[in-house]
Structure formats: C-alpha cells, structure tokens
C-alpha cells in the first residue's frame, strides 16, 4: 500500500504548504509514490490512519491543541513544517507582550471569541518526530526529508551556519555594509538565499546546534558583537533556544 500522507495547518500563513505545491513536477513524481489522504485546503475526505503528517503553523487556541493531539494519535510520523510549527516563527515575535494587550491593540475588544494564548510550537503540545525549518521551508529540503522517510532513513538537517553557504557562494558579507546578519548562528540549508537577494539573514531557520562554539561566531566577534547580543537584539524570527 502507498504511504498515506496528510497536510494540516494551524496558525501560520500557509506559505509552507504553498511552497510544497510550488514543487510542481517534483511533487507530481512524489505523488506517484504516496497517497495524499488529507490536504485541508483542497479535499474533505478524512481517513483515520496516516503514515506521515506534515503540520504547518503554531498552536494558539484550546481547540487547536485538541485537534493536534488527535492528529498525533492518528499519525505514525509527525513532521513540523516550517518555522511556525518548528519553533513559533514570526508568531512569537511578541512573546514578551501578553496576549490580552495585543488583542486590545488590534481589536480594541476583549470579546470571548478573540481569546487565544501565546503561540506554541508543536513540540510544546505533542511529540514531534522530525522538523523542516525555515520561513518558508525550502522545497528541496522538504523533498529530501520526504525521500528519507519513504526509504525509512533518518532525515538529516545541516548542522553548520548559513555563513558556510554564503562564503562558498562568495556573496559580499552584510557586515561589510554595516548591517547585522544572523548567518553566523543560523542553521544552513537555504543556500543563503536572503544574502543572495542583497538582504541579510534574519535567522528564519533557527539556531544551529551549539551556536557559541560554531566557528562563525567569530564573524560576530570581529564586528564587536556577542552571540547573546545578536540573539537578544536582532531576532525577527523566534530563533532563541527554548
């Protein structure tokens, strides 16, 4: 029997699911090997057992928590798809402000139907087996993880800094323009796409393991910054350690 996969989404922008759909021809090939049994946007038939569940978004409401738990029970493997699911992503930007004050700022109302709690990444609610980082995810990385899972191998994420990919591609360093770049502490795998685009890394893929011992934290020191400072002051995506 074909592997049954499902896509689910919680609080996010659907950009990660869209990135999967944008794989087009590659996706068509994958679709030969698997059976998509649930894709919330596009089909309604619900099947009980799922081999691999890909889940986008953070958990912000009580009923979402329950829905996620049910998906966990039905799924053999659960994969966090993108930063919102993996570590909270942009949803956690305001994690130092309380939800009630946010609600007042945006809606000037405390109506019951506006109630939520601080966004949680999936692993704070259920066991997450694998994760695909990024905001949005990288399509090729998604395919690689999917392929590993179909072959029953452990998917692996690169454990080196974005700086490595950036230097290999010989892009000019953002620090030389006087801009702060999170590349030295961020997990590679995006081919330093933002630096290629003339921007700087905002750390959407989350921290590399052991950022303080990664050779590239020296790039920071050369510019008079510490790992701590860069995490505290320049965070846009929720990059910090849990």
């Amino acid at each position: 029997m074909k592997t049954r996969i499902g896509f689910f989404d919680f609080t996010g922008c659907e950009g990660c699911q869209l990135t999967v759909m944008n794989l087009e021809n590659d996706l068509l090939q994958v679709l030969q090997l698997v059976e998509v049994v649930e894709f919330r946007e596009l089909m309604s038939e619900e099947v009980s057992e799922i081999d691999i569940a890909f889940i986008e978004g953070s958990i912000t409401r009580r009923q979402d928590r329950e829905r996620l738990q049910t998906i966990r029970e039905r799924s053999k493997i659960l994969v966090a798809l993108g930063a919102c699911a993996d570590n909270g992503g942009v949803n956690l930007l305001a994690s130092n402000q309380d939800v009630a004050s946010l609600r007042q700022q945006v809606y000037a109302s405390d109506a019951e139907h506006l109630q939520t709690f601080t966004p949680l990444p999936l692993h704070r609610v259920v066991k997450v087996d694998y994760r695909i980082p990024g905001c949005p995810i990288d399509g090729q990385e998604f395919l690689a993880v999917m392929q590993a899972l179909l072959l029953e191998r452990e998917p692996e994420l690169p454990n080196f800094a974005v700086c490595v990919e950036c230097k290999l591609a010989e892009y000019p360093c953002s620090f030389d323009y006087g801009e702060i770049c999170l590349g030295p502490v961020t997990r590679a795998g995006c081919r330093a796409i933002c630096i290629e685009g003339g921007d700087r890394c905002r750390g959407c893929r989350g921290l590399v393991d052991n950022p303080r011992t990664s050779p590239y934290h020296k790039v920071l020191e050369e510019h008079g910054l510490s790992v701590q400072e860069i995490l505290e002051q320049y965070r846009i995506f929720h990059i910090g350690e849990e």
């Binding site: 919680f10 609080t11 912000t60 409401r61 979402d64 942009v90 949803n91 930007l93 305001a94 402000q97 939800v99 004050s101 946010l102 609600r103 700022q105 945006v106 809606y107 506006l114 939520t116 966004p119 921007d199 905002r202 846009i236």
Partner: peptide, 20 residues
C-alpha cells in the same frame, strides 16, 4: 485564529517591517 500582526510590528525598525 488571530496573529495580531499590527501589534507585533510595534517597536520594529523600518527595515524589518516588510519581511515580517
């Protein structure tokens, strides 16, 4: 569910607003 984007932007530098 809500994501309170307008409030999330508060206090951010103008160069970060569009990507957020």
């Amino acid at each position: 569910s809500p994501r309170f984007f307008e409030a999330l932007l508060k206090g951010r530098h103008f160069s970060d607003i569009a990507p957020i």
